[in-house]
């Protein structure tokens, strides 16, 4: 079920002193089973864009098609759309409200018309799939740690069985371990459920590790839409937008300039490590000879 944006523009407070052109002529197509990263600094329009995907915001001009249908068409059911295109916002505190986690996660499915009995299995499945421990199911959502709240909030959207799951900064405020856990879980979800994941993040490192397509937003426009390593090769332009490529990209470029034949496509620690080792062997580096016992 692809999403398509055709010439989508959005203006906040049009014709006033506070007018902001948040999106300018966006053209995009999101295919099934993709794992997409969206990056851009605050105010770049990325949050506005994702809220267009599930009809929380109506574009000022242009059309958005879901599965070929205009989602702002006359008889289009936008509530059904919202359960097919799930959006989990950045702050779990903005959605958790029930007495216990399980009931909270049932909220979405029950809004879809399921009874509590029918909703509960969906909720349980979703909670387990995001790595939420069963022993905490009946805890109050307000007693949870930051990471657990985040999981409960994502499960709250996942339980509605969306075909596309949009995650706005799922790792903000989490510590490194919590961050890696949750991203691993999301990556697994993508393959287990076969759904499309759109990950909005500030972290280039996370995007490089998990996604296969990266959309860079700046001043309401899509500036890059390509494989992450291709986007990172424009690291100088990214810096001008207040963004930065992963540290590894800078290192690889620096090494290449100094004559080490490394692969510039490497944008994760694992890839870089492999490529550097290979390059060091090619140039017969003294660094390997002295201590290279188990290579």
């Amino acid at each position: 079920m692809p999403i398509e944006c055709k010439d989508v523009s959005f203006t906040y407070a049009p014709a006033t002193a506070y007018e902001i052109h948040a999106l300018k002529n966006i053209n995009l197509r999101i295919e099934d089973h993709e794992f997409i990263g969206i990056i851009g600094h605050t105010g770049s329009g990325k949050s506005t864009l994702i809220q267009h995907f599930n009809a929380l915001i109506q574009p000022t001009s242009g059309t958005i098609l879901y599965n070929g249908e205009d989602i702002w068409g006359q008889n289009y059911n936008r509530r059904t759309l919202r359960s097919e295109v799930g959006l989990a916002f950045q702050y779990p505190e903005h959605q958790l409200f029930e007495n216990d986690v399980l009931s909270d996660v049932c909220f979405g499915p029950m809004n879809q018309g399921l009874t509590r009995e029918e909703a509960e299995p969906e909720a349980r499945k979703a909670l387990l799939q995001v790595g939420f421990k069963e022993k905490n199911f009946l805890k109050s959502p307000f007693e949870l740690s930051g990471g657990q709240k985040k999981r409960a909030a994502i499960a709250g959207v996942l339980a509605m069985n969306p075909k596309i799951l949009i995650l706005d900064e799922p790792t903000a405020g989490l510590d490194p371990r919590g961050r890696d856990n949750i991203l691993d879980q999301i990556a697994e979800l993508q393959s287990v459920r076969g759904i499309t994941i759109i990950l909005v993040s500030h972290s280039m490192e996370d995007i490089a590790k998990y996604t296969r397509r990266l959309i860079v937003m700046n001043q309401g426009e899509v500036v890059y839409d390509d494989a992450p390593h291709e986007v990172f090769s424009h690291y100088e332009e990214l810096e001008k937008m207040g963004l930065a490529a992963p540290q590894v990209t800078y290192l690889m470029n620096g090494l290449k300039k100094r004559g080490l034949p490394v692969d510039l496509k490497a944008d994760t620690v694992a890839e870089a490590s492999k490529s550097i080792l290979k390059a060091l062997r090619e140039v017969d580096s003294p660094l390997l000879k002295e201590g290279g016992s188990h290579v």
Binding site: P176, R177, L251, A270, G292
Partner: peptide, 22 residues
């Protein structure tokens, strides 16, 4: 301790584990 190191530090560590003298 559930913490991370900067990406370059981790890379340097991986490389030295693989036998590069750093």
């Amino acid at each position: 301790y559930r913490l991370d190191v900067p990406q370059v530090t981790e890379l340097a560590y991986e490389l030295s584990q693989a036998g590069v003298k750093l």
